[in-house]
Amino acid sequence: MLLREGSKGAASSGALKVAALVSLGRHPVTGRGRRAEQDARAVELGLSLTSSEHISLIHAGTAADETVQAMRGYLGMGLDALDLIVQPPDADVLPALATRVMETRPGLVLCGSRGESGEASGMLPYLLAERLGWTLVSGVAKVEAVEGDSMTVLQALPRGQRRRLKVRLPAIATVDSAAPPPRQSAFGPARRAKVRHFELSGQIDAEAADWTVSPARKRPKRLKIVKASSARDRFKVAAAKAEGGGGQVVKGVSAQAGAEAILKLLREEGVVR
């Protein structure tokens, strides 16, 4: 981890200030409240970046017992306090979060790429970035270095690939399952840590009132539909075996010529550079 003193920007006052937006998770089997998987990874990423006093945890939601208990799951990772912005149950939390982030003025906001309760559309970081005018980077697996007003991150791509990006600060980064797994939450520190309540007026999400929400149905499995005009075609599909699919066969050439043909295809597909 590289942390150099910058000349300007958000990090100029010393260490980088990080805010982690955390949400109420839900255990996939028992349905009990817990720390959300991806948000916990975001907190872990924050802890790997800077010491715990420079990280502020922000949650906007109800002040119900279950929520507070779940929030203590994050606090047990070694943080002293969490800001709980109290909102009505069906509120749109974006304005409240935007206000709070503007007040704390962090250099970097970390959050999971998608929530585990409610709509879980994953839109919040995008809307927040749009509202604040900050840079947004998605799917961060690792923050390599923070230098002044920019940072270098590794972005997770499908198939275990990584891409190095240089991101202008202040920024909002979303973290998904490619980031390092979160540390265990310790019960004692979680009990001792403070949950600070803030009151901010919330707007009720009126649009969501028209939706029908039901427990997830199992998705229908796609059937293999055979559109064949004759019995022979249908039989051929049913008894499908490896058939010459019009593949090119290079035969009776030297090993070198064969290798050249393979290399050409690998280059075309972009797997060998």
Binding site: A242, G245, G247, Q248, V249, Q256, G258, A259, A261
Partner: peptide, 28 residues
């Protein structure tokens, strides 16, 4: 040349696998 993998393949090279791989490594 008559094996099922050759039939499935988009590109099939008939030859000794070790030799062809060696040539491929050399080319790269």
């Amino acid at each position: 040349p008559g094996c099922d993998m050759v039939k499935r393949a988009d590109l099939a090279v008939i030859g000794n696998a070790g030799e062809v791989l060696g040539e491929l490594v050399k080319l790269i």
